[in-house]
């Protein structure tokens, strides 16, 4: 269909139909047709509807091509993240190892303390028992000393046993605490992955 509007009418109508285009595209198209009308006559043009449709089609194709290019960039972005992870590994890996060693050391130290205190308890109990037994050898010489040694020995056995029982409960508590901490840590790690 041919255009039946005057030059200025055509340009005004075209601008209205291209209002959804980006500023630059619209300005360029209008400049082109304005320049054409300087020399050509309005009758040479197609209808405003047809002219606008052709311009909009062309811009849609260009926009689509741009979107496709952007999608390709998305692939490159993923590559960057992978590269970053690879380069971060030399830092992250030693950090993870250090953390693991720290946890292990804490457990070892705790076990050593428990062991030492436990041994003390056992030594006190055994020493007390031995003292109590030996006290009977002086029963004829000095019954007072024998009684004192027996009391001291039994007292030591009592203290030793108390320490052992206390250690047993502390041990159980520590094991329970560590397992809970580790469990929570692993759970959170699992969720993040």
């Amino acid at each position: 269909m041919k255009n039946n509007l005057s030059g200025p009418e055509f340009l005004a109508a075209l601008e209205k139909r291209l209002r959804l285009l980006p500023e630059e595209e619209r300005r360029e198209a209008l400049a082109y047709y304005a320049e054409f009308l300087e020399e050509g006559s309005p009758e040479e043009l197609d209808s405003v509807e047809e002219t606008a449709r052709q311009i909009l089609d062309q811009c849609a194709v260009t926009a689509l091509e741009k979107v496709e290019k952007k999608e390709k960039k998305g692939g490159i972005k993923t590559l960057w993240i992978v590269l970053l992870a690879v380069f971060a590994a030399p830092v992250a890996l030693p950090l993870a190892i250090a953390l693991g060693v720290m946890i292990l050391m804490t457990v070892v130290v705790a076990a050593a303390i428990v062991f030492a205190v436990g041994i003390t308890g056992v030594a006190l109990a055994l020493g007390g028992l031995w003292t109590a037994v030996l006290s009977f050898t002086v029963i004829a010489v000095s019954p007072v000393n024998m009684l004192m040694a027996l009391g001291l020995g039994l007292g030591l056995v009592g203290i030793g046993l108390l320490i052992l029982i206390g250690m047993f409960y502390i041990c159980r508590g520590v094991v329970w605490l560590i397992s809970k901490l580790l469990g929570g840590f692993l759970k959170r790690g699992g969720k993040n992955a």
């Binding site: 082109y32 047709y33 054409f36 020399e39 050509g40 043009l45 197609d46 002219t51 311009i55």
Partner: peptide
């Protein structure tokens, strides 16, 4: 623009509305 249109329409039946998208 106008000179190009004239040259093209001398040989081919082509309208202005088709030529502008080609140039773009």
């Amino acid at each position: 623009g106008y000179s190009l249109t004239q040259e093209m329409t001398r040989t081919v039946e082509i309208s202005e509305s088709t030529l502008y998208p080609v140039l773009q």
